[in-house]
Nucleic acid binder design. Sequence first.
DNA 1: TTTTGAGTTGTTCGA
DNA 2: GTCGAACAACTCAAA
Length: 459
Amino acid sequence: MKSDRRLVLLYIHDEVSPGLRARGGASKWWLGKSLTEHARHIENAGGHLTIRTGATKDVLSDVISETGATAVFWNRRYGGPERALDTDLKANLKQDNIDVMTFNGRLLTEPWDITTGAGTPYKVFTPYWKAMKAAYRAPDALSAPKSLSGPDIKGVTVDDLGLQPTNPDWSGGLEETWTPGEAGAMERLSDFLEGPINTYADDRNRPDLEDGTSRLSPHLHFGEISPAQIWRAVQHGISADNFDESNAMVFLSELVWREFSYVLLYYNPDLATENYNSDFDALPWRKDSDASKAWSAGKTGYPIVDAGMRQLWHTGYMHNRVRMIVASFLTKHLLQPWQVGEDWFWDTLVDADQAANPASWQWTAGSGADAAPYFRVFNPITQGQKFDPNGTYVRRWCPELSDLPDKLLHTPWEADNAALKKAGITLGKTYPKPIVDHPTARQRALDAYDTLKEKRNAA
DNA sequence: TTTTGAGTTGTTCGA
DNA sequence: GTCGAACAACTCAAA
């Protein structure tokens, strides 16, 4: 690029173009923090981030006429409505003789790059993962531009976007949990690489451990760190013998699950609303808003489930193991449509992602790609005992159960009156009775899922 | 074209 | 307490 060319750094806050899914509350909070950080970073480098609101098409055309810009650059998006908008935008700009260049800033590879031998997109994770390992080499990092000078055109402030919650401000727990922005992301990565990566294969399943997982998902989602950076850092560590290779590869495989979700989204734009496997259209969900309300409020009476839902509400995050447990509980024990859970997560997760969130919900429900077999119904009691063996996680998020002995912590309904009294618990008052009986609910789920089999056989 | 082996994360039951 | 088998059948991916 010629050195006399100047750059307008522009963020368009577009809430009006058709088809876009409105951001959830937790996502808005993170976005606001992240934009503030990003703007500060750019100011420090001598540049300026311009923020505008409105339809992307209109904003861009204004900015082009104000500045005389001759080219526009952006990173590609993969959701259906986003692709339609971007394709249209590109065509219009080209018609006006504006150069357009788009880049992959979000993924390791484009969703269409890695295909089966037959040229079709992968639908099973393991062969996709093998192909990715064989094909992908992280590019070397480019150095940051020396100067970011550009015209300082008018825009709005981050505050003007109204992204922070007020009345009530529920963001305290998020605030104390996260450091949005590139610096926070880099710190998370280096902390993770300094130790936890070497025990990742087992410890990633332990919600009671503070550092079992990387917790990079929201940073990845908002582009504060790229999967290529992570891949490169991990590969370097493996080559230098700094990391235990098998543990490190499990971590990379999780990064590739994220890629796989984007393949699914790219080829299935309705991923967040429609069953990937349409057989599931016939599944007799129960529509029970009391049940789903108890679930989202963390009042099911199953401690590991409630702990997870409260961690989510408080911090905008839930440990991955617990996500599977609560998702299985909602879709199987309570037989609520997976979309109900997907929606709730969309609103409350700081890492809510249009590919990973629906892909994971569908995986758990059984309707997704490479999904869990229908008879796999997580037992919320044994999962709690296995992965939160000392009850640290449950005690943290359900403090009203704290004084129960470890042995009863995941089954408070089995405590006798003396034990309950000693722990200061009144079931049904200070902590709910189980909303469903596990064996009964499990059987009900298996029966409901069995009807799909019958329908298939009849067809 | 046909065949073959395999497929994220579990639970329960009975020996 | 531990261990292996059953829980289904289907689709995918590659040979």
